[in-house]
Design a binder for these strands. Structure first.
Lengths: 243, 243
DNA sequence: TCGCTTTCGCTACGAGTCGTAGCGTAATGC
DNA sequence: GCATTACGCTACGACTCGTAGCGAAAGCGA
């Protein structure tokens, strides 16, 4: 929660975390931080009720109890506003140590899917990504506030797996970075495609099958689902399997 | 090429290939098939120049040399029009036999990426997918005219690989279908994510690395260096197609 | 308490888009 | 000829956009 009416906001216009070194205190009336949270919440509510295309800034302003001009003073348009509103949904994304690489991957898949299942994320995220194909500044905003945090989970999970001895250490740092980018695109892309394009649920069964594919590959585990135990061809799972 | 002015179009409004058994010939003046192709081409041109958000139906009509009302008589709105316009881009998608599963996968990845690299596909496809999260009819239209054709390639590639002995035959048809859906989401999702979210090129290097991951899994081949160096605690089922 | 500065709420505005209605005309089949 | 449908064109109300201008409010320092 942001402290209320104490310090100026100035995170919204300049893009989450950018925190460009502007003078800490400016003369004049400070911007209401409460208005920021109200606007972003109103934006998500409007996304749920109306979806991206029918969402208007006038409507958002009315929901937030704020003048339309105030909205335009803080965000340059619909795209930037929705990015910030959706980005807050990803604050809950984290990677608790579940004891094994398999469990960690399954966990992050399900967490990511849980966010994507929310209607305000569905309709908002894809729309701004679509817009970002013609707007470099918007893409950078998305990358900094949403994508980068997801990628960090991949790096964290790999480091943890290497520490456990489940994955070999990396000799070439450049190749390691490429591999991490690849893994990230595969995981995030597959989950998004399953949830939004195929429009089928990302449940534990799917997450388990996907994780098996990711670790063992096609040639090993095609069409041999676990007989009755929910264990794949993997020999061991160290951590306690979340009851 | 569609034959010109001979038979009524009636594919556009009812969705590519649906071909509902309407009376083959209706009384009155038939719809101009030439207008259809002109409108769809104009839509793609407008997507390139303006992008999704700034594309207006009035502009498309003007480009196509057609009255705006004609456009509304054939398509119910922007979404449906763009789906049909983008769907034609996927007509070139096919799966020539490249001799091995590895080569087939790499080939389809690069083909798919080549389509996604075109600006009219970039900005249009993601936008309609975003809209489809709140419009079941639109999602079905996308599925029938775009997604299903991609999925067929996966099935074809697997059948070919099984015939070569590169993949085991499927005993349970239901599990086989689930696996095919999984593979499809992984491939299509990863390519889309790489191209649109990460905004980095899908070149042969990336396609090769991705294919390697897909076939062998993470535990085997992370990175280019010799696979013999570090071995994990996991048993490796390699190479030979287990019957 | 008084200025100074910036934000806020409000109203109003021109510009642009939307989707539809109405009309006369063109193209097909009977 | 007839009936039926598609087409081009014009016009329209409704809506959204993004901005401008204004007076009031909320901070800070003297």
């Amino acid at each position: 929660m942001i402290s209320l009416t104490t310090h100026p906001t100035q995170t919204s216009r300049y893009g989450r975390g950018m925190q460009s070194r502007t003078p800490a205190v400016r003369p004049g009336r400070p911007r209401s931080a409460a208005a920021d949270t109200a606007i972003l919440a109103a934006t998500r509510a409007a996304l749920v009720e109306l979806g991206w295309s029918k969402l208007t800034l006038g409507d958002v302003a009315a929901r937030a109890g704020v003048a339309k001009t105030t909205l335009y003073r803080r965000w340059s348009g619909k795209n930037e506003l929705v990015v910030d509103a959706v980005a807050e949904l990803f604050d809950e994304l984290e990677l608790p140590d579940r004891g094994s690489l398999t469990a960690d991957i399954e966990g992050v898949i399900l967490q990511f899917a849980a966010i994507l299942a929310r209607p305000e994320a569905k309709s908002g995220l894809m729309a701004v990504v679509a817009e970002s194909t013609r707007d470099d500044a918007l893409r950078e905003r998305i990358r900094a506030s949403i994508v980068e945090r997801q990628k960090l989970l991949v790096l964290e999970g790999r480091a943890r797996a290497q520490q456990r001895g489940e994955l070999p250490g990396e000799s070439d740092p450049e190749a390691a970075a490429r591999t991490a980018d690849l893994i990230f695109d595969v995981i995030a892309g597959a989950v998004v495609h399953r949830a939004l394009v195929s429009a089928e649920p990302v449940d534990t069964d799917w997450a388990r099958a996907f994780t098996g594919l990711l670790l063992n590959g096609l040639t090993a585990s095609t069409g041999h689902p676990p007989p009755s135990s929910h264990q794949t061809s993997f020999p061991r799972r160290t951590g306690a399997p979340r009851e």
